[in-house]
Design a binder for these strands. Sequence first.
DNA 1: ACCCAGGGTCATA
DNA 2: TATGACCATGGG
Length: 218
Amino acid sequence: MRFTRGRLARLYAALHRLHGPRHWWPADKPFEMMVGAVLVQNTRWHNATRAIAALKQANCLTPTKVAGSSLPTLAKLIRSSGTHRVKAKRLKALSRWLLERGGVARAGRLPTDELRRSLLAVHGVGPETADCILLYVFGRPMFVADAYARRFFSRYGFDPVPDGYEPLRQAVESVFVAEAPVFNEFHALIVWHSKELCLAKPLCERCGLRLSCAYGSR
DNA sequence: ACCCAGGGTCATA
DNA sequence: TATGACCATGGG
């Protein structure tokens, strides 16, 4: 089953009807979101949020403080997020990038494609992290083609789910055209549905898409 | 005592 | 360009 505008629109509508708006990304400030996007790499949110809390506790959750901290100091603070020595370098690189660009508001003047290229050039920022930042910090309409999205589509019978991050993102974005708030909700709903309620309320029984949903059989 | 998570980089061939 | 090793904690 291929991606079409109709199928994705109905999936989105069904998810939204089932779970309601999630208004989701657990951070209250832009820099905190950016930090979270790095800390969550290949890690559970639980562990990433602990690290963010530690940074906050140490009064270190600003670009200036992160850029100015030593690697060992930073690494110690974010230890709970796993691969902490790696991530310490990445946080510093991202902070430097933000400072060089003169902050979020200033950086946000760039057009989306340029902003994306700029983010991808930062050490430790790959396509998924870049898209999370673009979507949740800069409000650009990006589909986050992460592991949840891949599993989700796969289990709902899309075949083939394009291999690799970019191909999946483009497959979705080329047919599902929407504003940033919709992509924001879409991502949030996929994650929420996948981890919280997929077993209790299989979407395929409610959305009328006749998808061969494999949720619940794991 | 395993297994892996909302990735990304780097070294090889 | 395409794989694979590596990073490393906390929860199941």
